[in-house]
């Protein structure tokens, strides 16, 4: 996996962020284009390319969700065309309906939305805890089953994160009025 290789890392789902940052800074210094100003054109190109890869690698790997998505994509398990559980879709749909009511000015939905924000905030945190567990489980004993669980957990998290974003936005708009 290119991003891990650029930082001389063994591909694992869990990463030490301090170590990651240190590796990124070290290698960025090493490949800094200023150091290649007198080098050949080919070497200058290589330095530029490495700098770009290092930036992408660091941006992706420092975020657990982006890292997991990258990892799964490299393993042929990207998010497109995966199914969401029906109960989750029903729940997401109902909350969106409640959001729409508030958007249309029905203040009675506000209490429901505050409650929903708390509930979905808690769901998001528990998703993040689940991710941490799955990371260590896979790193300790890699299996396709665990990767599939990771895929499902990330899909669910995406819905929850969107809901948290939408509820926050709606509550913010209404408190500003």
């Amino acid at each position: 996996m290119k991003f891990y290789e650029a930082l001389d890392l063994v591909p694992t789902l869990a990463l030490d962020l301090d170590d990651l940052k240190k590796r990124f800074y070290d290698r960025s210094r090493q490949w800094h284009p200023d150091r290649f100003s007198r080098a050949s054109a080919a070497e200058q190109d290589q330095a530029l390319e490495m700098t770009a890869i290092l930036n992408d690698a660091f941006r992706t790997l420092r975020d657990p969700v982006a890292r997991a998505e990258y990892f799964l994509k490299e393993r042929g398990l990207d998010s497109s065309r995966t199914e969401a559980p029906p109960e989750l879709l029903e729940e997401v749909f109902e909350l969106n309906m409640a959001l729409e009511e508030l958007r249309d000015g029905d203040q009675s939905a506000r209490g429901q939305l505050v409650e929903a924000r708390d509930r979905f905030g808690a769901m998001l945190r528990s998703s993040d805890d689940q991710l941490t567990d799955i990371f260590s489980q896979f790193d300790f004993s890699p299996s396709d089953d665990t990767l599939n669980t990771l895929r499902a957990t990330l899909n669910r998290r995406r819905y929850i994160a969107n809901l948290v974003r939408d509820v926050d936005k709606e509550l913010h708009v209404h408190s500003a009025n």
Partner: peptide, 13 residues
């Protein structure tokens, strides 16, 4: 029919 697209978080009924 209730379907969803996890990559963008859309829901369609």
């Amino acid at each position: 029919g209730m379907v969803g697209a996890p990559e963008c978080g859309d829901v369609m009924k």
